[in-house]
Amino acid sequence: MTDGGRAATKVGDPGKSAEKPSPPRSRKESFRSSPRYRTFVKYRFVTGFLIIPFGLYAVFVISPFVQTFYYSFTDWTGFSSDFNMVGFENYSRLLDDETFWAAVRNNLVLALAVPFVTLSLGLFFAFMLTVGGRHKRGEAVSGVRGAKTYKIVYFFPQALSIAVIAALWGYIFKPDVGLLDPVLPGALSPNGGWLADSSFALWAVMIVMCWAMVGFFVVLFSAAIGQIPKEIYESALLDGASRAVTFFRITLPLIRDTVQTGWVYMGIMALGAESFAVVNIITQGPGGPEDSTMVLGVYLWQTGFAQAQAGRGAAMGVALFILTMILAIAALSVGRRRDRIEY
């Protein structure tokens, strides 16, 4: 392209003296025809599109982000605009705070267990819905009977807001009147129900989170599996591969990228928004009993807003940010594949 520009200049030169010799225009034209012009136009174009979204991002994401770091070093209450710098006091208090560590521990359990269960279930269902069925109508691969209906049914929870889902499950777990109470054997039915017992409450939270998210991954993974050429499955079947072998040797390796992205997404949901909503709505306290379901999001909210210690809350926000970053980077880098399979 740059060569083309240079060529145009040369061609333009003889005509200039003959027709309209105006110096300013010629300077303009020389920039227009210079090699940098293309680059200029390209970046002007890109900048034009980016300036508004980037401005919004800077104002609503980056600036609060930076401010949070700043506020975490102050004793700001959140009620008034005066505060003092207190150095690392907010952080050193967090280190001695048992509830904070309970929240970190629960968050880690959620961030590891919930994605594992949700993605496993999502993969299993997606596999069964797309390639797991019996062969029919001459097709080599197909889903189980009624796959389309199942896919819609699995997606239902996604259509409900997480607040509705949590409230719904809150009733299911309720003692005496809930759905769960009559079907559970005595050993699994503590006095007051699952949410009142510190050894069961976190399980209840995990069940709700998995139930709410699994449908999304069924649809996501179904789409990914659908992209895999049928011929690969056909040849595997010809070789006599079982469903399990097909799944672990063909499906899983070929949709690995999607699974990895899903893992990061689910991990972030388990650390942030999703766990906050579920814990806040269904658990006692919230975060109880005895901090057994406390998560950082809820503790941050309680400290920063309800107790008017926005400075300490900001410090927790920073801690949560660091934790999320570490998990996200770990999930993205562990098991990253250098070689890609093309199909």
Binding site: P64, T68, G78, G272, W301, A310, A314, F321, T324, A328
Partner: peptide
């Protein structure tokens, strides 16, 4: 991923 992390976690307080 970065956007997902940063939006819900840190900015709420400010």
């Amino acid at each position: 991923a970065l956007g997902l992390i940063s939006v819900p976690t840190v900015s709420a307080l400010s």
